[in-house]
């Protein structure tokens, strides 16, 4: 199964929905709340986001080598082969 990592904000309802999606599909994932992270983690996430031209929009969902910015269950499903 592809590795799933989510960058999220603790204040963002779409981030919560993205987490719910993976939970409901029994897909294990890691996540980091950018707003609660330490400075070094924040810098790393920022670099990752900007490299994908996302301008710090969350959720930022990494599925294997692919990235989906935003809550988009159809894309998550497609990339997970659901």
């Amino acid at each position: 199964m592809k590795k799933v990592v989510l960058y999220t904000l603790s204040t963002c309802p779409w981030c919560m929905r993205a987490k719910k999606f993976f939970r409901e599909h029994d897909i294990p994932f890691e996540y980091v709340d950018y707003d609660k992270a330490d400075d070094k983690t924040k810098r790393d996430i920022k670099e990752d986001c900007l490299a994908h031209g996302s301008e710090m929009s969350f959720p930022f969902v990494k599925i294997g080598d692919d990235v989906v910015v935003g809550y988009n269950p159809d894309k998550y499903s497609k990339l997970m082969g659901l």
Partner: peptide, 23 residues
């Protein structure tokens, strides 16, 4: 982006998707 605001003609906000800036 967060969906707090929608265009005035929108009645069903769930029909609107987040499209990333890059896309």
């Amino acid at each position: 982006w967060c969906g707090l605001y929608v265009h005035k003609d929108i009645e069903d906000p769930d029909s609107l998707m987040q499209i990333s800036l890059q896309e």
